[in-house]
């Protein structure tokens, strides 16, 4: 069956794999796991189980082997799975924390933990100045506070350079809705990072 996405390398590997070429799946994982990992890191912060989540994303691909039909670029399909898994992961985290609070835990535990996950920056930018680390940390924390759909829309537009129509496919919404999500995300960031932005402008 032909489709307009047949030129997409991911779609071609998927087709080859469906046709019995087991190596094609390895090629898919080789080519796309870094992208998925990076997206999950930007979306969820430095949490420890990102590699598990990458595995989970590809496990879904394995299970979709027989019935996969390209209706978008392969990366769009993959990002959509990654987004759904991430949102679930966040909700599980919230449920866990809620349980902990009920058991007499610290009500602030969740927000401090979430922020801490966005903080491990020194390991990523060795040699960077301390001041720069603070900036990075603050920007990441501001991104982390965005609602999930706005956050993902912004990250996909900014770092994956996805057009709004494709972001719409990832998030299961319209291009117009994505436009407004990105708009609101930037508005919130400009507000919460106002002090930093002024320094940057100066």
């Amino acid at each position: 069956m032909q489709s307009e996405y047949d030129e997409d390398p991911g779609v071609r590997w998927m087709r080859a794999w469906q046709a019995g070429d087991e190596g094609a799946f390895d090629a898919l994982v080789e080519a796309y796991s870094p992208q998925v990992y990076a997206l999950l890191t930007r979306f969820l912060g430095q949490r420890a189980n990102r590699e598990d989540l990458v595995q989970e994303v590809f496990l879904r691909v394995v299970r979709a082997r027989e019935r996969y039909e390209p209706s978008a670029r392969f990366s769009t399909f993959l990002f959509r799975i990654a987004y759904n898994i991430s949102v679930n992961e966040t909700q599980r985290g919230i449920a866990r924390e809620a349980g902990r609070v009920e058991l007499g835990g610290d009500a602030n535990a969740r927000s401090s933990r979430t922020l801490a996950e966005f903080e491990d920056t020194r390991a990523e930018a060795p040699g960077a100045e301390l001041e720069r680390d603070d900036v990075v940390r603050e920007v990441r924390a501001a991104i982390a506070r965005l609602p999930e759909n706005q956050r993902m829309a912004l990250l996909l537009a900014k770092y994956e350079e996805l057009p709004y129509s494709e972001i719409g496919e990832v998030l299961g919404t319209s291009e117009k809705a994505v436009k407004s999500m990105v708009h609101r995300a930037r508005e919130s960031l400009r507000e919460s990072l106002a002090a930093l932005l002024e320094e940057e402008e100066a």
Binding site: E124, R132, V139, L197, E200
Partner: peptide
């Protein structure tokens, strides 16, 4: 300025 800040974030380390 926001663009500059967003672009200055280090890429996630694989």
């Amino acid at each position: 300025a926001l663009e500059t800040l967003l672009e200055s974030l280090p890429a996630p380390k694989l």
